[in-house]
Simulated assay, not measured.
Amino acid sequence: MIEISKNVKGLIFDLDGTVANTMQNHFLSWREAVLPYGIDFNAELFKSLTGKPRGATILRLNELFGTNMNPIIVGKVKGESFQKMINETKEISIVADVIRKYHTILPMSIGTGSTKNGAKKTLEVIKMSHYFNIVITANDIQNPKPHPETFLTCAELMGIAPKDCVVFEDGILGMQAAEEAGMMVVDVNDYFKMEFTI
């Protein structure tokens, strides 16, 4: 079980790769979407982009590879590919157990780079929707991770000072965002090993 400091007053969870084991499916759907543009979307590249919203990821890939992918068109392919796999999503038990343990004891929220529809569907599939009244997605903010806006919005809606919140994250950008927000961070990678297979 992941131990929580006694000082913590609010819990904030990233969704993909933290609460829901969606990362292999995201990885495969990104590979499918950018392969026609000659990009070998490998695990290392994926990890460096984890936490960025779809459009921002495509723009970054354009910068890295000199491509001219249309974020709307490529994003649609990625989204449709991911949707086909979404019903196979499982919870990440080590984190889901924390949610179950602290439900009704501490305020909790989700802070994700996913879209509102994507987050809603993922939470439904892993049967965790009822634990979260506050779900902040890419649709709710101006500045994605590593900017702290996602997590600061969660803290504000929970009515908890940022310094009293702990963020559960698997992505580098998300951890940077949490630290920037002045929050405590639990690196989920210390408890759960993500494997990417092609």
Rank of each mutant, 00 (worst) to 15 (best):
residue 87 N to L: 15
residue 36 P to T: 14
residue 73 I to K: 13
residue 181 A to F: 09
residue 89 T to Y: 06
residue 121 K to I: 13
residue 29 S to G: 06
residue 55 G to K: 14
residue 39 I to W: 00
residue 125 V to M: 06
residue 83 Q to N: 14
residue 149 E to R: 02
residue 195 E to T: 10
residue 94 I to A: 00
residue 176 Q to N: 13
residue 196 F to M: 02
residue 196 F to C: 01
residue 197 T to S: 15
residue 99 I to F: 02
residue 92 I to W: 10
residue 13 F to P: 14
residue 103 H to E: 01
residue 46 F to S: 03
residue 150 T to H: 03
residue 152 L to F: 10
residue 186 V to R: 07
residue 173 L to V: 09
residue 27 F to L: 00
residue 50 T to A: 14
residue 33 A to L: 04
residue 103 H to Y: 12
residue 104 T to K: 14
residue 164 D to G: 00
residue 186 V to C: 08
residue 121 K to F: 06
residue 44 E to S: 14
residue 159 G to M: 12
residue 99 I to Y: 07
residue 129 S to E: 14
residue 173 L to P: 11
residue 32 E to L: 12
residue 52 K to I: 11
residue 15 L to E: 06
residue 166 V to G: 04
residue 142 Q to C: 03
residue 28 L to Y: 09
residue 50 T to L: 14
residue 104 T to F: 03
residue 80 E to F: 15
residue 121 K to Y: 13
residue 36 P to Y: 08
residue 170 D to N: 11
residue 96 A to W: 11
residue 102 Y to V: 09
residue 70 N to G: 02
residue 195 E to G: 08
residue 192 F to P: 10
residue 186 V to P: 05
residue 77 V to A: 11
residue 116 K to C: 03
residue 122 T to A: 13
residue 54 R to T: 15
residue 59 L to Q: 15
residue 7 N to R: 11
residue 6 K to H: 07
residue 154 C to K: 05
residue 74 V to K: 04
residue 178 A to V: 05
residue 103 H to G: 01
residue 188 V to D: 01
residue 26 H to C: 05
residue 52 K to D: 12
residue 196 F to L: 01
residue 36 P to R: 01
residue 178 A to M: 04
residue 195 E to Y: 13
residue 89 T to F: 07
residue 55 G to E: 15
residue 1 M to T: 13
residue 68 N to I: 00
residue 150 T to V: 07
residue 158 M to P: 11
residue 120 K to E: 12
residue 82 F to N: 01
residue 166 V to I: 11
residue 34 V to W: 10
residue 76 K to I: 02
residue 163 K to G: 00
residue 125 V to L: 03
residue 187 D to V: 00
residue 156 E to G: 02
residue 184 M to D: 08
residue 146 P to N: 07
residue 130 H to N: 15
residue 34 V to R: 04
residue 139 N to M: 05
residue 197 T to Q: 13
residue 40 D to L: 09
residue 161 A to P: 07
residue 152 L to M: 07
residue 135 V to M: 11
